[in-house]
Nucleic acid binder design. Structure first.
Length: 155
DNA sequence: ATAATGTCCCATC
DNA sequence: GATGGGACATTAT
């Protein structure tokens, strides 16, 4: 089968997704949208509705490279919570700057929740726009986009 | 081999 | 509180 690609809206941005079944190859934020399908969980998440992004897999977490291990560690950060670059580094057994470099090159934001990794003193960075990171964190703190478990999805 | 990262920590004002 | 420099691991050129 061919890899599918499409986009959905999140605030002022469009979230482009390349995927197949439960495996996500790439996620990126862009000004303009494109037609095509997007995984159901991502669609719900962007709409601020309950979703469980952990049901999706990312190509970024596969392999035995240091980056892959970093992405796996980040994936375990619960929705609504944050960790610092240093803490992730300690868990994986690497350096804080390596974590920063890995986040900057994260091929699948959201699926690998790099927005939950913040600096010890501030919020850290995010591209293409730090405002996206702030919006994601604010949404996870206030809304119940987290915990799709056991039917509370609608009513 | 060198530069560049979405960092951290400690020593200074 | 603000600033500066060094150390750290990894990737890209």
């Amino acid at each position: 089968m061919a890899i599918l690609s499409g986009s959905c809206r999140f605030g002022l941005w469009n979230v482009h997704v390349s995927w197949q079944d439960d495996l996500v190859y790439r996620v990126r934020f862009a000004r303009e949208g494109i037609p095509g399908p997007v995984p159901e969980e991502i669609l719900r998440y962007c709409a601020g509705r309950p979703s469980d992004l952990s049901t999706l897999r990312s190509v970024a977490t596969e392999g035995e490279t240091t980056f892959a291990r970093i992405y796996r560690a980040v994936r375990e950060v619960p929705c609504g919570e944050t960790v610092t670059y240093g803490e992730v580094a300690w868990m994986v057994g690497t350096a804080p700057r390596a974590v920063g470099a890995a986040m900057a090159r994260n091929p699948t934001p959201l699926v690998v929740p790099c927005h939950r990794v913040v600096a010890k003193t501030g919020i850290g960075g995010f591209s293409p726009d730090l405002a996206i990171k702030e919006a994601l964190l604010a949404m996870e703190r206030q809304r119940d986009v987290c915990m799709p478990e056991k039917g509370e999805v609608n009513r």
